[in-house]
Write a protein that binds this DNA or RNA. Structure first.
Lengths: 250, 250
DNA sequence: CGGTTGATTGAGGCTGCTCAAAAGGTGTGG
DNA sequence: CCACACCTTTTGAGCAGCCTCAATCAACCG
C-alpha cells in the first residue's frame, strides 16, 4: 500500500485525518507515520487522560469513540466533546500545564501514544504538518463553538438532534459511516444528558417523543438514526463548520 | 524602546500576547512586529467580521473589547466568546472556508488587520511563532471548554459569576486591570444574557441578588466587581486554565 | 422634547429538574 | 441454571428556575 490512507481501519488514523487539511510531501508523510508506530487496545470506559495530569504525551484515537469531560465535586458532570477516530487529545505536547479535563473511552478503542518532544519537533521540522494541525484545531474550535450555541440557545429536542447530526457527520468524515445512511450512537441516555446539559430523565422523555415522530429508534444504550436529513432541519444543523478542508490545490 | 512589550498600550498587542507563550529570537520578533504595522480605530458596536464572510484576513484587537456571536434567524442569539486586547479573530488565514460566526466590538477599539498570506508565511518561516500561536489556540480552546461547562452545568448566578471572573483574569493578564482590584464590564444585561444562555430579565434579577449580597454593583451598562475572590468561590472558578504559560526556560 | 436604548418589575406558564420507585437486561458466582 | 447485583431505562408526581409577555421607568441624544 503506497497510500497510507488506504490502509486498514485505524492504522495511521492521524495521517488520514491530517491529509484532510493539507497535502504532504514524502518526508512529511514519513514523519507523521513515524510518530504513531504502535497502538494499544483499551477497554470500554477506560481512562485515557485524567484531569490534572501533567503528562504531556499526545494520544491519538485510532478506533472507537471517546469523550472529554469535566467532573464537579458535587456530582455534576459535563461532557465537553466527543472524539472520533483520528482525533487527538492530551496537552498537545505542552508539558508546563496540567490538562483541565479528563478523557475516557466510550467503546473499546485503539489508541497510539506519541512522545511530546517528538510531536513538537516534527512540527518544527515540517511546517506543513504544523499547518495541518492548526487547521485541525480550528475545526475543533468550531465544534466547541457549536456546542456553546447548542447549550446556550436550543431546546432539549433541538440539542439532541444537533448532537446526533454532528456525530453522524464526523463519523462519516472519518470513514466510519454505515452504508444505509443510518448510524448508531454508543452513548447512554445518562451520557447524552451530560453532554447536553440535561438530566437523563429528561433525555429519556424527549427521545421517546423523537421516536414517536419517527426520527430515530433506540434500545439498550444504542440510538439508531433513520433520517439524518429530517433531523438536520429540526436541529438547524449546517455541516459546513465541520469541514475546513484543504484548498483543491495546495 | 528596545523591548516592544514596554511600548504604549495597544501597539504590538500580538507580540505582547505571544510572548506569554514562547520566547522569540530577534528575527522572529521583527517578523511579528512587521505583521501588524498599522492599526485603525473603530467605533463601539462596529462589525469586525460578519458571519459567512470568506475574507481570510486576520484581525488583531489592540485596544478595547469585542465578542464573537452567532445569530439565529428567529432572533435567538448566542455570544460565543469575548476578545480582549491581543486576541485574534478571523479565519486564521484560511481562505477556503467562510467563518461561522460574527465579531463585533463592545467598546471603541483599535484593531490591526493582517494579510492572510503573510500571516501563514511568517509561521512557516518561524516555527517559534507557529508554536506560540498554537499555544494561544490551546488556551482559547480551554476557555471555550469552560463556557461549555458553564452553560451546561451551572445555575444562573454561578454562570454570571464565572463569566465575570474570567473577564477579570483575562483583562488583568493583558495589562488592563485596575489597581484597586475591582473592574468594570462594558456588557449590557442583554449581552450578558446572550453570553450565558439567559434572558436579560433573568440576568437583571440575579444581578440584583448578587448586588444585595455585596458581590458587585452595577449602573447604566457597567458592572463593577468588588471582591473578585468571593466571586471566584461562588463560581467555582479556577484561573489555571487561562494561563498555559511558557516554561521558565525556553 | 420626542425617540431610543437599556433597566426594572409583575404575572403567569412551561421546560426541565428532583426525588422515588419499578422494570428490563446483563453479567457473575454458586 | 438460578439467584443476585448492577446498570440503564422508564414512569410518576411535584416543584422551581427561568422564560414570555407586557408595561413602566430611567438615561441619553439629536
Amino acid at each position: 500500500m503506497t497510500d497510507p490512507r488506504a490502509s486498514p481501519a485505524g492504522a495511521n488514523a492521524l495521517l488520514r485525518k491530517l491529509s484532510r487539511y493539507a497535502t504532504f510531501d514524502d518526508p512529511a508523510q514519513d514523519a507523521i507515520d513515524g510518530l504513531e508506530r504502535t497502538s494499544e487496545w483499551v477497554s470500554r470506559r477506560a481512562v485515557l487522560i485524567s484531569e490534572g495530569e501533567t503528562e504531556a504525551a499526545v494520544v491519538v484515537l485510532w478506533e472507537g469513540l471517546a469523550y472529554r469531560h469535566k467532573d464537579f465535586r458535587d456530582g455534576r458532570r459535563q461532557i465537553i466533546g466527543l472524539l472520533v477516530p483520528g482525533d487527538i487529545c492530551g496537552g498537545h505536547g505542552e508539558s508546563s500545564s496540567p490538562v483541565d479535563y479528563g478523557v475516557r473511552t466510550l467503546t473499546r478503542a485503539r489508541v497510539a501514544r506519541i512522545n511530546a518532544d517528538r510531536f513538537l519537533q516534527t512540527q518544527a521540522d515540517h511546517p506543513s504538518i504544523a499547518r495541518a494541525l492548526q487547521r485541525a484545531m480550528l475545526v475543533e474550535q468550531a465544534i466547541q463553538r457549536a456546542w456553546i450555541v447548542n447549550l446556550g440557545q436550543r431546546k432539549a429536542h433541538e440539542r439532541i438532534a444537533h448532537l446526533l447530526c454532528e456525530l453522524a457527520q464526523r463519523l462519516s468524515d472519518c470513514g466510519f459511516s454505515r452504508p444505509d445512511g443510518g448510524f448508531e450512537v454508543a452513548l447512554t441516555q445518562d451520557q447524552l444528558g451530560s453532554a447536553l446539559g440535561l438530566t437523563s430523565v429528561h433525555v429519556n422523555r424527549v427521545l421517546q417523543r423523537l421516536r414517536a415522530e419517527g426520527f430515530l429508534d433506540f434500545d439498550r444504550g444504542v440510538v439508531r438514526i433513520h433520517e439524518v436529513i429530517r433531523l438536520q432541519s429540526l436541529a438547524d444543523f449546517n455541516p459546513a463548520y465541520l469541514s475546513n478542508s484543504a484548498p483543491a490545490i495546495s
